[in-house]
Design a protein around this nucleic acid. Sequence first.
DNA 1: CTGTTAGCGCATTCAC
DNA 2: GTGAATGCGCTAACAG
Lengths: 356, 356
Amino acid sequence: MEQQLTIKQIAQLAGVSVGTVDRVLHNRGKVSDKALAAVQAVLDTQSYRYNIHTSAVAFKKTGKSLHLLISIPSSEKGEYWDLVRQGLDKALREYGDISIVCEYFFFDQFSSLSCRDVFHKVASQPCSAVILGTTFIAETRELCWRLDERGVPYVFVDGSVPGTNPVGRFMVDQNVCGRLLARLMDGFTPDGSEIAVLLPRRIGTQISNNSALRLQAFKDYFAARGSKRIIKESFFPAADAAEASAEIVSFLEKNPKVRGIAVVISAGYRVADAVPDSRREGLVIGGFDVTEGNSRCILAGTMDFLINQHPDRQGFCAVESLLHFLLYGAPDKSSEGRLPIDIVFKENLMPRQAAE
Amino acid sequence: MEQQLTIKQIAQLAGVSVGTVDRVLHNRGKVSDKALAAVQAVLDTQSYRYNIHTSAVAFKKTGKSLHLLISIPSSEKGEYWDLVRQGLDKALREYGDISIVCEYFFFDQFSSLSCRDVFHKVASQPCSAVILGTTFIAETRELCWRLDERGVPYVFVDGSVPGTNPVGRFMVDQNVCGRLLARLMDGFTPDGSEIAVLLPRRIGTQISNNSALRLQAFKDYFAARGSKRIIKESFFPAADAAEASAEIVSFLEKNPKVRGIAVVISAGYRVADAVPDSRREGLVIGGFDVTEGNSRCILAGTMDFLINQHPDRQGFCAVESLLHFLLYGAPDKSSEGRLPIDIVFKENLMPRQAAE
DNA sequence: CTGTTAGCGCATTCAC
DNA sequence: GTGAATGCGCTAACAG
């Protein structure tokens, strides 16, 4: 709408040259106090909007390009971290006018050793910035310290780690996830019935931070309302379909009053697949995220709803914000807020939920 | 990621100049068959991505700017069409690097006469393109014919009108809205209870197309499942708080078995406000869209859920797509798909749901 | 420290 | 019909 302020105009208003304005805007130093004050004065009055795209064009001249390192868990196609990746890639495509060299470092989300190994490589790799999937707290923190030392900016996807200084954090509120799950389960199951919460059991690894937060919030919901609902917590081997199936069948037999199953991870389809048809009627199953497996179950009617964290959006925002930071030199305004959470039923499941 | 193809490179590969490539890309004619074939050959092999932003920069030189006409219903702050407007404005801000002159033409969504009047002005106003809120079918169609004659492109927000040729249509599937509403109501109310559907009663105007579609889909949901649920349809005066209140109290007294109220328009808060506290317990109220009134009720706990059509997103996408069309000369790939629909509970209500 | 300038992708104008 | 040249906002190299 209203004409944008350009650096040329700023220069004119401040009585300096565009070079000086550029130096001020990017904190490149080598500016006299007087010139700095003059430019600042203009910036304080008028609102300047930086044009990331023309900036990118100018960058091309030098042949320099941004070097992005992305370290996230590896993932089957259509599973959680692959969706994150789709969002990352989509952003990289959308900002294709900016010269970006991008390198992925995948680690095994079930192995802290693998994470440590991979992060070690990341720590010493020269780059402009890093995007991290926060899975292992200690390992992530250590890497961040190394990056801080080197002055390399980084952003988090899917979580945050205390004691670090990320330029942005892109995640949803797990507390909201847990309470929302509780609300839906509470509403969709009959009053006297029991509800099961299924947690992942992993070999040699303890329950992930997100699962724990969701479980806590889930229980908090009922506690806060003074609900008499009986909640049955149970672990299942999320990685092994056959084993999971056997355990879930047995669990349902032992708990005949269960009318709802809340799966606090994105492998809900494993549970849905395991429930025998004879038990399907009157059983509500809810899970997380529109992964391929969950999507299939929703369409088939063997799962009832999903809480969508929009992993793709998280990835997209991470790249977008990081580019803004790298080119503009200051964090994006919206890099700190929690991202919205959706609820997906069969009725509103979109074949391809597009990232942003 | 991979280097973008530029028009300079295309020119080189085709053995012509950038001017010729530009003429081909924009169908400006004045190109020999031979040159056209050469450029086409390159475009067929390589994939060219047009850079809308550098294009916008170049446009500035000429001082020419895009003239957008936006004609939508007027609206109180925070109500449905104001949310659409927020999305429109957000897009205009985001694409602030493009010189756009934008003019709003508001009409009264309850008066076809007002619409006709306003559209008459729009029809003769010179402009680059038009964005239309599709409220009155006949009036919209007539305007579109006039625009077609003049060769002015237009897009729809919040609906579509048969027999027109919009460059894009940005809306959600009302069929999905209705079925989703039914699904939620069905799940959240006890089995034997009755469900009320509340429709707007307007003076001198018949029920809007969207409301009718939602109602039909709502009923279809139950019919398809052979459900024995009793659905009570009722009209209420959405525009008058006092009258609405009286009628709803009386409705609830006459229908004591009603446990769910589905309001098929965005004025659900009027219903929620009218329900006496004594009847609140065990009553589920669902409506449409995160308007200020609905938002207040959700937070207060007097409404239970909203189906969010993201009017802001619709507006945003409309502008984005139109700009793409105007600058590139071809419709956006994603200008035809239906937009996603969210569900909002107290737990996942975001204070300010940002557009895109 | 500061101003000038070339050039990025693109649209347009104007000679040829 | 066509291509060379100009300038949009911006960066960076360079000359003062």
